[in-house]
Amino acid sequence: VTLFVALYDYEAITEDDLSFHKGEKFQILNSSEGDWWEARSLTTGETGYIPSNYVAPVD
Rank of each mutant, 00 (worst) to 15 (best):
V1F: 14
V1W: 14
V1Y: 15
V1I: 13
V1N: 15
V1S: 14
V1A: 14
V1P: 13
V1G: 14
T2I: 14
T2L: 12
T2D: 10
T2Y: 11
T2A: 11
T2N: 13
T2H: 11
T2F: 09
T2K: 14
T2E: 12
L3W: 11
L3H: 10
L3D: 05
L3Y: 14
L3C: 06
F4D: 00
F4P: 00
F4A: 09
F4Y: 14
F4Q: 03
F4V: 14
F4T: 03
V5I: 12
V5P: 00
V5Y: 14
V5T: 05
A6I: 01
A6W: 00
A6G: 04
A6P: 00
A6F: 01
A6E: 00
L7Q: 05
L7Y: 03
L7N: 03
L7G: 02
L7D: 01
L7K: 06
L7E: 03
Y8H: 08
Y8A: 10
Y8D: 07
Y8M: 09
Y8I: 07
D9V: 03
D9I: 02
D9W: 04
D9P: 06
D9K: 05
D9S: 08
D9Q: 05
D9R: 04
D9L: 03
Y10P: 00
Y10H: 06
Y10Q: 02
Y10C: 03
Y10T: 01
Y10L: 03
E11G: 06
E11A: 11
E11Y: 10
E11K: 10
E11D: 10
E11N: 12
E11R: 09
E11F: 12
A12S: 11
A12P: 05
A12R: 07
A12W: 02
A12E: 02
A12V: 02
I13V: 14
I13P: 09
I13E: 11
I13R: 15
I13D: 09
I13K: 15
T14F: 14
T14S: 14
T14G: 15
T14K: 15
T14W: 12
T14L: 14
T14V: 07
T14C: 10
T14E: 12
T14A: 14
E15Q: 12
E15L: 12
E15A: 14
E15K: 15
E15P: 12
E15F: 10
E15N: 12
E15I: 11
D16I: 14
D16A: 14
D16N: 15
D16K: 15
D16G: 13
D16H: 13
D17H: 15
D17P: 02
D17C: 09
D17W: 15
D17S: 14
L18S: 02
L18E: 00
L18M: 13
L18F: 08
L18A: 01
L18Q: 03
S19A: 06
S19P: 06
S19E: 04
S19M: 03
F20Y: 01
F20R: 00
F20V: 04
H21E: 08
H21L: 11
H21G: 09
K22I: 09
K22C: 06
K22D: 02
K22S: 07
K22F: 05
K22H: 06
G23T: 02
G23V: 01
G23L: 03
G23P: 00
G23M: 03
E24C: 04
E24P: 00
E24H: 07
E24G: 02
E24L: 01
K25S: 06
K25P: 05
K25Y: 11
K25I: 15
K25E: 08
K25F: 14
K25D: 02
K25L: 14
F26I: 04
F26C: 01
F26H: 00
F26W: 01
F26Q: 00
F26S: 00
Q27H: 13
Q27F: 15
Q27R: 08
Q27K: 08
Q27G: 03
Q27L: 12
I28N: 01
I28M: 04
I28W: 02
I28G: 01
I28Q: 01
I28F: 03
I28R: 04
I28K: 04
L29T: 07
L29C: 07
L29P: 04
L29I: 09
N30S: 12
N30D: 11
N30V: 08
N30T: 08
N30R: 07
N30F: 07
N30I: 06
N30P: 04
N30M: 08
N30L: 06
N30G: 10
S31Y: 13
S31V: 10
S31R: 11
S31K: 12
S31L: 10
S32N: 10
S32D: 10
S32C: 09
S32W: 11
S32M: 12
E33Q: 14
E33I: 11
E33S: 15
E33T: 12
E33M: 13
E33Y: 12
G34K: 14
G34S: 13
G34N: 11
G34C: 07
G34F: 11
G34D: 14
G34I: 11
G34Y: 09
D35G: 12
D35Q: 11
D35E: 14
D35K: 10
D35N: 09
W36R: 14
W36M: 14
W36S: 07
W36K: 12
W36T: 06
W37N: 01
W37T: 03
W37E: 01
W37A: 03
E38H: 15
E38L: 15
E38F: 15
E38P: 05
E38S: 07
E38I: 14
E38K: 10
E38A: 07
A39M: 04
A39H: 01
A39L: 01
A39Q: 01
A39Y: 02
A39S: 03
R40D: 02
R40C: 09
R40F: 13
R40V: 14
R40Q: 11
S41T: 04
S41E: 03
S41R: 13
S41M: 06
S41N: 12
S41I: 07
S41W: 02
S41D: 04
L42Y: 07
L42P: 03
L42E: 10
L42H: 05
L42W: 07
T43P: 02
T43N: 10
T43W: 12
T43S: 11
T43G: 07
T43E: 15
T43M: 11
T44Y: 03
T44A: 02
T44W: 02
T44F: 02
T44K: 03
T44H: 04
G45T: 04
G45L: 07
G45P: 01
G45S: 05
G45R: 04
G45N: 09
G45D: 06
G45C: 07
G45E: 05
E46I: 10
E46P: 00
E46R: 12
E46L: 12
T47A: 07
T47W: 09
T47E: 09
T47Q: 11
T47D: 04
T47G: 04
T47V: 15
G48Y: 02
G48V: 02
G48P: 00
G48D: 00
G48T: 01
G48K: 02
Y49N: 09
Y49F: 10
Y49K: 12
Y49L: 15
Y49W: 12
Y49D: 02
Y49E: 03
I50S: 00
I50G: 00
I50W: 01
I50M: 02
I50L: 07
I50R: 00
I50N: 00
I50C: 01
P51F: 06
P51R: 09
P51W: 08
P51A: 04
P51G: 04
P51L: 08
S52G: 07
S52D: 02
S52Y: 08
S52C: 07
S52K: 15
N53Y: 10
N53E: 09
N53F: 09
N53L: 10
N53H: 12
Y54K: 08
Y54R: 07
Y54W: 07
Y54A: 13
Y54S: 11
Y54H: 09
V55P: 00
V55R: 00
V55T: 03
V55Y: 01
V55C: 05
V55N: 01
V55Q: 01
V55M: 10
A56N: 06
A56T: 12
A56M: 14
A56E: 10
A56F: 09
A56P: 01
A56D: 05
P57N: 06
P57Y: 07
P57Q: 08
P57T: 06
V58H: 10
V58G: 05
V58D: 10
V58E: 11
V58W: 13
V58A: 11
V58C: 08
V58S: 08
V58L: 13
D59E: 13
D59F: 14
D59Q: 12
D59S: 12
D59A: 12
D59K: 10
